[in-house]
Design a protein around this nucleic acid. Structure first.
Lengths: 198, 198
DNA sequence: GAGATACTAGATAGATCGATCTAGTGAGAC
DNA sequence: GTCTCACTAGATCGATCTATCTAGTATCTC
């Protein structure tokens, strides 16, 4: 047992979907990148391309959830600092990969939003996980309405990643990181404007 | 002169790219949707699919720039209110179209970011226009670092649109609109935390 | 009317797509 | 040994893709 072919296929698919999207990625390219025979693809993913997509989204999503939990679990710094760290991890990944490694889910999510219900649902679940991880970190600091703030933080992160990738410039990620960190600090209990909302 | 075939092709391409992305949209589908003959496509867009993509991005981008200027040019409400209005325009479009009409650029931008330089550049220019329009509106209210705040607002908008589309739920757009409106108000001169940054 | 230009119309090419199918290989069960 | 089953290997299918090519039609100029 134990052939790692399935894992290699999943990894290759995740990498290609991240870089060039779902529709632009051919299954032939996936098997070539994975060094796997064509026949193995339909052995491990009898549901074809859509199943491979769903599984790859779940795979990438889980990997990033672990990464979030790692950063959020660190002792140093407050929640604002932790969020800043997440942004800067993406900055590094973007620069190191030549603007290739953005969000592993976003492209597929947009492509599938009105096209494939299983794929869209898989993306939505990943986003929910990321949001929940962020919300827990915010709530640990006593921030009220942590769920809503986490939604906004995740949205700003995804959007900034999109802008930075499109512009080939890390500026949007850097700027957005600073402003969101300040926004988080202002939501802390005891902050001057924390309860200016209700 | 005066055949509107080119305009119909552009409109159909923009609509399809918005809904299902660049790679997933076939040129056959574009001509069919436009009611245009196949031959006309390469007559008006000799550069093929890529030129059609670049032109469609510019077309959609200009249309939205006009829409932004319209909303931002209104007399009623402050900048925070205006930004809120932009978010809610998208909420309406999303609901009316059954989650189809998101950002007309974002999907293509992500697909092209590491794939087609001309296409990526076209998207970057559109984003720059949108950011500039937002920055002007913010600066008109005396907000400092309006460019940076506009970047953040645009990022949050794009990200919230992505999340709402993936979740089939306007919640992320609504929540993010409120938080960004508050953030803008806190950046106004005279606000308690306006100069707590430097 | 003649000729040039702009556009329409669609056949066709050649490549590639996702998916199915058959045949073969290899390791473990008994 | 041999039976079984997980997996490999790739030929093959029909559909669809982008792009090119040739004709034909309409419209304007002169």
């Amino acid at each position: 047992m134990g052939s790692d072919t399935r894992a290699r296929l999943l990894e290759a698919a995740a990498r290609l979907f991240r870089r060039q999207g779902y529709a632009a990625t051919g299954l032939k390219q996936v098997t070539a990148e994975a060094g796997a025979p064509w026949g193995s693809l339909y052995h491990f993913f009898p549901g074809g391309k859509e199943q491979l997509g769903v599984d790859a989204v779940g795979y990438s999503g889980a990997r990033f959830t672990r990464l979030f939990d790692l950063v959020y679990g660190r002792a140093e710094g407050d929640a604002a600092e932790a969020v800043r760290d997440v942004f800067h991890l993406s900055i590094d990944a973007l620069e190191r990969s030549g603007w290739g490694d953005g969000c592993p889910i976003a492209t597929v999510a947009l492509e599938a939003a009105s096209t494939s219900e299983p794929l869209r649902h898989a993306c939505a679940e990943v986003f929910a996980d990321w949001r929940a991880a962020t919300a827990r970190r915010l709530a640990a600091e006593g921030i009220e309405r942590a769920e809503d703030l986490a939604t906004c933080v995740l949205a700003a992160f995804e959007g900034a990643l999109l802008l930075s990738r499109a512009n080939h410039d890390t500026g949007p990620l850097r700027v957005t990181a600073e402003i969101m960190a300040r926004t988080i600090r202002e939501c802390r209990p005891g902050s001057a404007s924390a309860d200016s909302v209700s």
